[in-house]
């Protein structure tokens, strides 16, 4: 077993883990169940997190390689008391159906808008290409990203 300190959603956390374990598993075992397991193959994007500001599928990251790094999950960007404009936009645009892809979708949107506050539609589509959704057909999700971009522009 190994031990390591991680900075998750702004708080320092110490975990003990199997050196072969994936970050997804360790996060989920320690209560970060908002990081979803959809395939464990890096295909679906349900387990997406921000690792030192970069978008990664946490199922493809060895926990040991993330020691000391900054991890942000969907809970780290906002909640009901101070929702992030992206979260508001997802609700207003009706971009949420079963909700299982939603945390990953929101983080991919967050990552896109950070560097590109006014993305064109094809840039949005490209940015979400690694996030599978089986409910919405992506239409309202793309609407939500556009709405989020407008909302963030106003602030």
């Amino acid at each position: 077993m190994m031990e390591g300190i991680f900075r998750i959603n702004g708080k320092e956390k110490r975990f003990t883990f199997n050196p072969r374990s994936r970050l997804l598993t360790v996060l989920r075992e320690n209560g970060y169940t908002e990081v979803k397991e959809g395939c464990k193959e890096g295909e679906c994007g349900a387990c997406i997190i921000l690792l030192d500001g970069r978008l990664v599928n946490s199922c493809q990251v060895l926990t040991a390689s993330a020691i000391g790094k900054e991890i942000i999950t969907v809970k780290g960007i906002g909640d009901i008391h101070s929702p992030h404009p992206i979260q508001e936009a997802f609700v207003e645009a009706s971009a949420v159906q079963c909700g299982f892809c939603t945390p990953g979708m929101i983080l991919s949107t967050y990552y896109l808008l950070k560097d590109n506050p006014n993305p064109k539609e094809d840039e949005i589509r490209k940015a979400l290409d690694g996030n599978l959704c089986r409910c919405t057909g992506y239409v309202k999700i793309i609407d939500a990203v556009k709405l989020a971009s407008r909302k963030m522009g106003e602030k």
């Binding site: 908002e34 909640d79 929702p83 979260q87 009706s94 939603t102």
Partner: peptide, 21 residues
Amino acid sequence: KPIRKVDDQDKIEGKVRYIAD
């Protein structure tokens, strides 16, 4: 006329728990 869906809030916050959670 569309309204705000009632189960969305928990889902966007990552608060909702599916069976694996």
